[in-house]
Simulated scan of single mutants.
Amino acid sequence: MKTKTLCKMVIDLVMTILMLVLMACRLTGNTIHELLGVSLFILFIVHNILNWGWYKTLLKGRYNTLRVLHTAVNILLLAAMLALMISGVMFSRTVFAFMDLNGGLFARKLHMLSTYWGFILISVHLGMHWGVIMDTARKLANITAPNRNRTFTLRIMAVLITVYGVYASFNRDVGSKLILYYTYDFWNFDQSLVFFSVDYLSIMGLYVCVTYYTVRLIQQRS
């Protein structure tokens, strides 16, 4: 495997983990939250530099259904991440407090909205590349031959994650947060980071699975 490809995958994995931890800001505390946010911003810049070739091909070639979908998701994810980082700087109380931007309620609303849309779009983005991720995982594990039992087990796991992801989506009121129905995200301080992570990993798995099989269906029809 090429070093650049492996580097890109490691950065994407770390960014995904950081996004999940950043969503648990009430458990990590504000200072750690902001420092991790800066780390995510730096990795986001590196990610875009490593994938600069994609931007150069935007106006080249023809667009089929899959390419339109892929481009739309990437542009929306870029917008969500930029909004997330700008709003974070606007009402920073630690790292960027010296700038005294005082974003107020607008910055808080924008930050919450872009956080949840960013999380969903990251999940969809992963789903669109899940085939490549699985191929890379098989190569790293030196798996060359297909195995019916392994495939069956993985599909059962995918179904269970998807079902629980649907439950967790309703339990966490993700839909309401995507339309900013709530101005503030009320936090249950009795919950642990483990249960929080399981819920949101399942929600992520839901969107990864739906996107992956949607892409496969489009490819088959094409």
Rank of each mutant, 00 (worst) to 15 (best):
I42P: 00
Y167R: 07
I75D: 02
V159E: 08
T151K: 11
F106C: 06
M19Y: 04
C25I: 09
F91G: 01
I122T: 15
R67C: 11
M204V: 13
F195P: 00
C7R: 08
Q191R: 13
A83T: 08
S192N: 11
A83W: 02
L6M: 09
L126C: 13
S92V: 05
K60L: 06
V68K: 09
M85H: 06
F119T: 11
L110M: 12
M85E: 02
L66T: 09
N171E: 14
L84D: 01
T16A: 07
T71R: 02
F44S: 10
W52C: 12
Y212P: 01
F106Y: 11
L76H: 03
A83Y: 01
S222W: 08
F41Y: 12
N64Q: 02
T115E: 04
S197W: 02
A158Q: 11
A97Q: 02
G103K: 05
G37D: 07
G61R: 11
N171P: 01
Q220E: 14
A24M: 06
L82F: 07
L126T: 10
V10K: 02
L217C: 12
F106W: 13
N48H: 11
I179F: 12
V198W: 00
F41G: 07
R138V: 05
S169Q: 06
H125K: 08
I17P: 00
